[in-house]
């Protein structure tokens, strides 16, 4: 936005200034300031750190609420802590909690996560050049296989891709028909008994309306939940197939 890369005289130092955008969030910025000022994290001078922190926020001429709201939230927390420290206490107890403790705990935990990130980043760099076999195992038809069942996330993903496709087709049919879950569920089970399995993509493509597809999808989820059927993906990027569980196949 504005000259964030330049030295700001209001800080009165020759230290380099960094754009707010490089920080992962308010805690990241706070840790940076604490390190820069060589401050003991367990004994943060709240007034100093708040001033430094606000200088960074001031550099933004306009606040983009989407991104900077979180920075403002921590600024408010800093000011709150300062006010708590200024307020005279009725009684001073030894075990009274330092108002800064909440912030210190969060910073310590965040610092730990950041450090772990640095180590994981190195591990990632070590692992990325090692190529693994991603050839899908051959699949056999007919028999129930020991394949990994797919997660709800895969299923929903596949469903939304299909719906997007439908949207593009721009169907303009007004249908007054109402679909009952019960009917649909029986329909799916009958279909499975007859056809052995159901091809997720094909099945939903045969639906004419979004409503029907939605009802069918909920039915399918319901059946999976009831453990009547299970959904598997035989190979990567292949269509998802739904099978009737053995015990439900009478």
């Amino acid at each position: 936005m504005n000259n964030t890369g330049e030295t700001d005289s209001s800080i009165g130092s020759s230290e380099y200034q960094v754009n707010l955008d490089v920080f992962q969030g308010p805690l990241d910025l706070l840790l940076f300031l604490i390190r820069k000022k060589k401050i003991d994290i367990h004994d943060i001078p709240i007034a100093t750190i708040t001033r430094e922190y606000l200088v960074y926020l001031d550099k933004k001429e306009r606040i983009n609420l989407e991104r900077e709201a979180e920075f403002l939230l921590v600024a408010a927390l800093l000011i709150y802590i300062k006010s708590q420290m200024l307020l005279p206490r009725e009684r001073l107890l030894d075990d009274e909690e330092d108002p800064r403790q909440v912030l210190v705990d969060r910073l310590l935990e965040y610092q730990k996560i950041k450090a772990a990130c640095a180590i994981l980043r190195q591990k990632e760099a070590d692992e990325l050049p090692k190529w693994k076999r991603d050839v899908p195992p051959p699949h056999f038809m007919g028999e129930e296989l020991d394949l990994t069942e797919i997660s709800l996330f895969n299923l929903a993903e596949a469903f939304f891709i299909l719906m997007k496709k439908k949207e593009r087709e721009n169907i303009q049919i007004i249908m007054g028909k109402e679909y009952s879950m019960e009917e649909k569920m029986n329909e799916i089970i009958e279909f499975l008994k007859e056809n052995h399995y159901l091809d997720f993509t094909e099945y939903f493509e045969s639906h004419t309306t979004i409503e029907e597809a939605l009802v069918s999808f909920f039915c399918l989820l319901e059946l999976i939940k009831a453990r009547t059927v299970y959904a598997i993906q035989e190979t990567l990027f292949q269509t998802i197939k739904v099978w009737l569980r053995k015990e439900s196949r009478k």
Binding site: R106, C117, L120, E124
Partner: peptide, 29 residues
């Protein structure tokens, strides 16, 4: 490579799992 934000989120989950989105956001700020 994973983005910095994604790695940070992943690291938070790894150390604090099982965890919810609100908890992850609280850790990261």
């Amino acid at each position: 490579k994973l983005s910095s934000a994604a790695l940070e989120t992943l690291s938070t989950i790894a150390y604090h799992q099982p965890i919810t989105l609100a908890e992850i956001s609280a850790f990261r700020g």
